[in-house]
Computed example of a mutant assay.
Amino acid sequence: MGFLKRLLGSNKKPTEQVSKQFENIPSENESDGSRGNAILEFHRSIQTGINWNELNDVEFGMWLPNEKDPRFSESSIVEKWDVIYSITKDYWSYIAADILKILDEIDEETFRIGLPEDFQAFAFLTTEGEQIVFSISQEKGIRFHFSETTSLEYRSDFMDHFIAYCNAWKSLVKQNNGEQDEDLEFDKWWKYTLEVSKGVEEKEPLNGVGKIVK
């Protein structure tokens, strides 16, 4: 656990320090450099946290229909959320702590954090100027809510980077004999939401899944 503490106790955007930490860890099947790059690339994608009132007056959701992605049941986004939930259910304390640290919401010494019973959300701006909402809760887990004006291509790319980031944390925790998190079963919320949403969509178009009410 010493490495994890050093990594998560570093500077807010610890590009140089994280890179040096990876140089000191023996490689196994996957290079630690690639793990470090996955984490750093995701760090770099977040520019700064923003106030809630700075959000554009548009809808935000885990999935929102657009011309290229009109049906939830056929969306490539669904599979990405399946993967995200399968990983975060065991490593949510590490992932949530690291993201909240990037957003300057927790102190630099915190390397694991519990999920709140009540829903909490934090808005941020990406380096490409996109607005995204990050939310956490024991019921629904770790989620991102994208603006209706954000393209499908950007949503997909962001989620792919996040999946690589989550896999990197999973690998690091395992390699350093870190503890897996208690299964809060928030993936059951996603499976239920998936089932209900697909059922509704058989009868009428969906206007969104996992939408944020501003």
Rank of each mutant, 00 (worst) to 15 (best):
K20H: 11
Q21P: 01
Q21S: 11
F22T: 01
F22I: 01
F22E: 00
F22K: 02
E23K: 12
N24A: 15
I25P: 00
P26E: 09
P26W: 03
P26R: 02
E28I: 08
N29G: 15
N29Q: 15
E30C: 10
E30S: 09
E30R: 09
G33L: 14
G36T: 01
N37P: 01
E41H: 09
F42E: 00
F42I: 03
F42W: 03
R44S: 14
S45L: 12
G49F: 05
I50G: 04
W52A: 15
N53A: 12
E54C: 09
D57W: 07
E59I: 10
E59M: 14
F60K: 02
F60P: 02
G61M: 04
M62C: 12
M62E: 14
P65D: 01
P65S: 08
N66I: 06
N66C: 15
N66S: 15
E67N: 12
E67S: 11
P70D: 07
R71W: 07
S73M: 12
E74A: 14
S75R: 03
V78R: 12
E79T: 10
D82I: 05
V83C: 08
I84F: 02
Y85F: 13
T88M: 06
D90L: 10
Y91D: 04
Y94S: 00
I95A: 04
A97K: 03
D98A: 07
D98I: 00
I102L: 15
D104C: 11
I106E: 03
E108K: 13
E109S: 15
T110F: 07
F111P: 00
L115N: 05
F119K: 15
Q120A: 12
Q120H: 13
F122L: 07
T126I: 06
T127Y: 07
E128K: 13
G129Y: 08
G129W: 03
G129C: 07
G129N: 09
Q131M: 11
Q131E: 14
V133N: 02
V133L: 13
F134W: 07
F134E: 00
F134R: 00
S135E: 05
S135N: 06
S135M: 03
I136C: 08
I136A: 06
S137G: 08
Q138R: 14
G141C: 04
G141I: 04
I142L: 15
I142S: 05
H145C: 10
F146P: 00
E148P: 04
T149P: 01
T149A: 13
T150F: 03
L152Y: 09
E153P: 02
R155G: 03
R155T: 06
F158R: 04
M159R: 04
M159F: 03
H161F: 08
H161N: 14
I163H: 00
A164M: 05
A164N: 07
Y165Q: 00
